[in-house]
Write a protein that binds this DNA or RNA. Structure first.
Length: 266
DNA sequence: TACATATGATCAT
DNA sequence: TGATCCTATGTAA
């Protein structure tokens, strides 16, 4: 489930689980054998996320760069669990074991290479820094591409994926095909703030739940059914949670987005 | 058992 | 825009 919230949560969990102690590293799949050998015996010094990119600093001087892509997973497993041949990287610390499968990227890089990667990324609402909000507003205002495409462009804002895209536009009542520069900068600013709020909640719960307290009982939200967690994503054909008209699907930037034709009028 | 699908991104056309 | 890569899961057969 890798959108920005997943990676930030992952960085936090890896830090808490593995920081400071030497790890045993291996690549049961074999495709990261050299990298795992370099990490073997090293200690994790820091882990942080920028959008959907994860960077782990090791005492060996190496930086581990991971991008989960669409299907990648990096999860804590029971220590005794038998390594399977799909595991790109296995990290075993004194108290926990982590395994990485199906990543789009898993590589050891230099600080320069990390800087090259982050230089291509837009501001991430979950990172500290000044002028990120105004930078987002500027980048959105600089293009007439549809906002639904712009939100997936990691050079404009880092961390939004297909689920948050649909949810944010539904909450803001913006039609996905609206030319980005036509949107009132005040609303774009609110979109930034909302993205931060939603992503932070995603980190907290380690899942995407966008429905507000008005629509769901917060006390039971941690056991909320998947069908009740979202307003728009994958709800095409169902009644809009706001106006009860039917939610529609459209294709934008090569992906499917659901939207309400009434609440998100063109 | 097989197939469709997926919260991503890149490269070719 | 379409093909492609990577793996796991849910549904259909």
């Amino acid at each position: 489930m890798p959108e920005g919230h997943t990676i930030h949560r992952l960085a936090r969990d890896l830090r808490r689980d593995l920081a400071g102690e030497p790890v045993e590293a291996s690549s049961p799949q074999g495709r990261f054998a050299d990298g795992a050998a370099r990490l073997h015996g090293a200690a994790l010094e820091s882990a942080d996320a920028w959008g959907k990119h994860l960077f782990c600093q090791w005492s060996s001087g190496d930086i581990l760069h991971v991008h989960l892509g669409l299907i990648g997973k990096f999860r804590r497993v029971a220590p005794a669990r038998e390594p399977r041949d799909t595991i790109r990287l296995l990290l075993a610390g004194p108290d926990s074991t982590w395994q990485l499968t199906g990543p789009q990227t898993c590589a050891l890089i230099t600080p320069t290479e990390r800087d090259d990667i982050t230089a291509e990324l837009g501001p991430d609402p979950l990172r500290r820094g000044t002028r990120r909000r105004s930078e987002f507003i500027r980048r959105v205002g600089a293009t007439r591409r549809p906002i639904g495409a712009v939100l997936l462009d990691q050079r404009v804002i880092a961390g939004i994926g297909n689920v948050y895209r649909a949810e944010l536009l539904w909450i803001c009542g913006i039609h996905p095909e609206t030319p980005a520069s036509d949107i009132d900068p005040v609303l774009v600013g609110e979109l930034w703030d909302l993205t931060g709020t939603q992503l932070r909640q995603g980190v907290d719960w380690n899942r995407i739940v966008t429905v507000s307290a008005d629509d769901v009982d917060r006390r039971v939200t941690r056991t909320i059914k998947r069908d009740d967690a979202l307003y728009a994503y994958k709800r095409a054909g169902l009644p809009c949670r706001r106006c009860h008209d039917l939610v529609l699907d459209m294709s934008l930037a090569g992906r499917t987005i659901a939207y309400c034709p009434t609440c998100q009028a063109a």
